[in-house]
Write a protein that binds this DNA or RNA. Structure first.
Lengths: 206, 206
DNA sequence: AAAAAATTCAAACGCTCGTTTAATATTAAA
DNA sequence: TTTAATATTAAACGAGCGTTTGAATTTTTT
C-alpha cells in the first residue's frame, strides 16, 4: 500500500466530522473535505464509496464507543439487587456522551457538535445515527419502564426523547458563553453531568 | 399587476416553508420551490431578491405573530400584583408556539417543523430566526431572574436554552407516533402544553 | 384608449456538485 | 526481482445550482 492507508482514511474521517458538524450534510462538499485533509478527491470514493457512506463511517467511529459505554453502565445498574434511582439511570444516559469531551486531544468540541448535528439533520441522514443508537435507546426505555411503572410507555417515550434532545443541545452549545458546558476539563464535565441530571430527573418523574 | 402579486408571493412562501422544514436550507432548491408552487423560477428573485432573503421572509411571516403573543402574555403576567409562578411563566413561553398548530387549515404541522428546523440550521441561517426571537428571549430571561432570584444569570441562561430546545423538539416531532403532540386538536394542544410545563418546571427550580 | 408600471416568462450564465475513469505510483507477495 | 494487489492522482463527466437578462405580458394610471 502507499503511505499507510489508515492515515488517509482517518484524515478524511476527522476533517469530514468537523465539516459535517459545522455545515451539515448537504452544506459540506467533498471538495472542502479533501482540500482540508490534503488528499485527492477520488480518495473519498476509493475508501468509502460515496458521500453518504462517508457520513456513515463518521457516525460509526464516534457512536460505537458511546453506545458500548452506555450499555455497560446500564448492565451495571441491572446487576444490582435493588432498582436504580431515576438519577442513576439518567446519569447512565448522559454520562457517556458528555465524557467524549474529555477524550482525545483536540477535536473534542467538534465531536460533540457532530453528535448533536446528527440528530438535527433532515431525513434520510438523521436515520443513519438513529439506527446506531437504537439498541441503547430501547434498553434505556425498558429500564425506565421498570423504574417508573406507573407511567405509560408512550409517556416515557416522549419524555426520554426530550431528555435526549436536551443532551444533544448541551453537546451542540458546549464551549459557547452561557452554555452548561464551558470547558472540557473532567471536573467541569462531572459538574455538568450532575446539573443536567438534576434538571431532568423531576421531569421524568412528573 | 398580473395575477395578484400577493398570490404568487404567498404561494412561494408556503411551499418554501414546507421544503425548508423537510430538507433544510441547503437541501432545498429554488427549482423545487417554484415547481411545486407553479410559478416561474425568476419570480423568487423578483419578489424576494435571493434564496436567503426568501428564508428571511418565511421566518418573519411565522415568527412575528408568535413573538407578539409571547410578549402579550408576558406583559399580562407583569401587570399583576404578585410575581408569577414558574408554571405560569413557562406556559407563556411554550403556549404561543404550540398554538400555531391550531391555526390555519392545513400547513400546521409543517409550520411547527419549520420553526424547529430554524433552530437546528447551521450558521449563518440559524441566526436569522434567532434575531427574530431575541427580544422575547431577553424579556423572558429577565422575568425568570425575578421569579428565581436565587439562581445566577448563567444558570438561568442554559436552563432557558434547554427549555426552548425541548419546545423545539416537541414541534419537530409533532404528529409522529410516541410524540407528545399527536393531533392539532385544541384540547390536545392544551393538554400537551400542561404536560410540557409540568415536565420542565421542577427543572427550572432545581 | 394610450402610457406607464408591475409582473411573468423562457433562456441562458458561470459555477460547483458528486461521481467516474484510466493512467500512474506505491507496496506486498511470489 | 518479477508479479500482483493496493493506493493515489489529474482530468473529465453530466447534472444541478443560484442568479441574471431582456423581451413579452398583464395590470394600473393618466
Amino acid at each position: 500500500m502507499a503511505a499507510s492507508t489508515t492515515e488517509t482514511k482517518e484524515q478524511i474521517l476527522t476533517v469530514a466530522e468537523r465539516l459535517f458538524a459545522e455545515h451539515g450534510f448537504t452544506g459540506t462538499t467533498l471538495r472542502n473535505v479533501v482540500s482540508e485533509a490534503r488528499v485527492n478527491l477520488a480518495a473519498v470514493h476509493y475508501h468509502f464509496g460515496s458521500k453518504e457512506e462517508l457520513f456513515r463511517a463518521v457516525v460509526a467511529r464516534f457512536a460505537r464507543p458511546v453506545v458500548e459505554r452506555e450499555l455497560r453502565l446500564l448492565s451495571e445498574l441491572k446487576s444490582r439487587s435493588e432498582l436504580p434511582s431515576v438519577e442513576a439511570l439518567l446519569t447512565a444516559v448522559v454520562q457517556p456522551s458528555l465524557e467524549i469531551l474529555s477524550e482525545g486531544e483536540e477535536a473534542r468540541l467538534v465531536r460533540a457538535k457532530f453528535m448533536g448535528r446528527c440528530r438535527t439533520e433532515p431525513e434520510p441522514i438523521q436515520s443513519i445515527a438513529y439506527v446506531e443508537f437504537a439498541v441503547a435507546t430501547e434498553a434505556f426505555l425498558d429500564m425506565f419502564q421498570r423504574v417508573l411503572p406507573e407511567q405509560s410507555r408512550s409517556q416515557l417515550g416522549w419524555k426520554f426523547d426530550l431528555v435526549i434532545s436536551t443532551l444533544v443541545r448541551v453537546l451542540m452549545e458546549a464551549g459557547k458563553p452561557y452554555a452548561l458546558l464551558q470547558t472540557t476539563r473532567p471536573e467541569d464535565i462531572e459538574a455538568a453531568t450532575q446539573k443536567l441530571v438534576a434538571f431532568l430527573s423531576p421531569g421524568m418523574r412528573s
